[in-house]
């Protein structure tokens, strides 16, 4: 298959992604808007309210990075994949030289690319507008973010694989989004959770991801087991999702 076809396919899928508006609005604009709201509340910027003497906004920046990834992977991807299967888009592609797997590849690339843009925007606004320090360990931060994105894309494929319709995929994706965001500390930062909740949180993909992102933001590498856990989620959800996913 030609690279022209792959480029065209990815460009077309990206156009549809923009036209759909869910990803750009909730995955890119919304998290940064939320950051701006938090940044303008004294409660979030006064170190007296924070954890370890830091303003709460510092704690929330990695949580919002997790929010970006979860939003794009769980709210945008599963309904798209399920509707492509439901409407026969994948089946139609099976009769062309470009197989349906290429569409999934294009979708993953768009999800990762958009997450990158959104996280860069978020960190830039946090730094420039609200004086939130940039991650002190950028390599660890990037690795953690990429592992988190891949793990959640794996979850998204799994959701799309086990749901018969786009509607069902949307519902399950949303529920998972809220559950995972809870354990990632959106309503109650992980550091403030009681020990039992914290242990559960550390075992979930997004909880582990936010912890790894917080570690690297503070300037140290996350413990190896945390990164291995994330890598395990990538391999586990990815291979199970690919095995269960049907083109029709």
């Amino acid at each position: 298959m030609s690279t022209d076809a792959l480029r065209r396919l990815t460009a077309t899928e990206f156009t549809l992604f923009l036209r759909d508006k869910v990803g750009p609005i909730f995955g890119v604009l919304f998290p940064t808007a939320l950051l701006c709201v938090f940044g303008n509340l004294d409660f979030f910027t006064d170190p007296a309210n924070g954890i370890d003497g830091q303003p709460l906004l510092y704690t929330y920046t990695p949580i919002l990075v997790g929010f970006v990834i979860a939003m794009l992977a769980l709210n945008s991807l599963p309904p798209t994949l399920a509707s492509y299967r439901e409407q026969g888009v994948l089946r139609r592609l099976r009769t062309t030289p470009v197989g349906p797997a290429q569409v999934l590849g294009a979708q993953f690339a768009i999800c990762l690319g958009t997450a990158l843009v959104s996280v860069v925007l978020l960190l830039a606004v946090a730094r420039l507008a609200f004086d939130v320090p940039l991650p002190r360990q950028p390599l660890a931060f990037t690795l953690s973010a990429v592992l988190a994105a891949l793990a959640l894309i794996g979850v998204a494929v799994l959701v799309a694989a086990v749901t018969p319709t786009a509607k069902a995929a949307n519902a399950i994706g949303s529920v998972l989004f809220y559950v995972m965001m809870f354990f990632a500390g959106l309503w109650l930062p992980i550091e403030a959770m009681p020990p039992v909740l914290r242990h559960v949180s550390e075992a979930t993909p997004l909880g582990a991801a936010v912890q790894a992102l917080s570690d690297s933001t503070a300037g140290h590498w996350p413990p190896a087991w945390r990164l291995l856990l994330l890598a395990g989620y990538v391999v586990g959800t990815g291979s199970l999702g690919v095995r269960l996913f049907r083109w029709e």
């Binding site: 298959m1 030609s2 076809a5 077309t12 549809l16 026969g88 030289p97």
Partner: peptide, 25 residues
């Protein structure tokens, strides 16, 4: 191949569909 029923994303335009499929061959 022409299959029974609809098989394209709803928001894809006619011209875009043809340009996309054209690039496959």
């Amino acid at each position: 191949v022409q299959l029974q029923g609809a098989h394209l994303p709803e928001k894809l335009r006619v011209g875009e569909a043809l340009d996309l499929y054209r690039s496959f061959y």
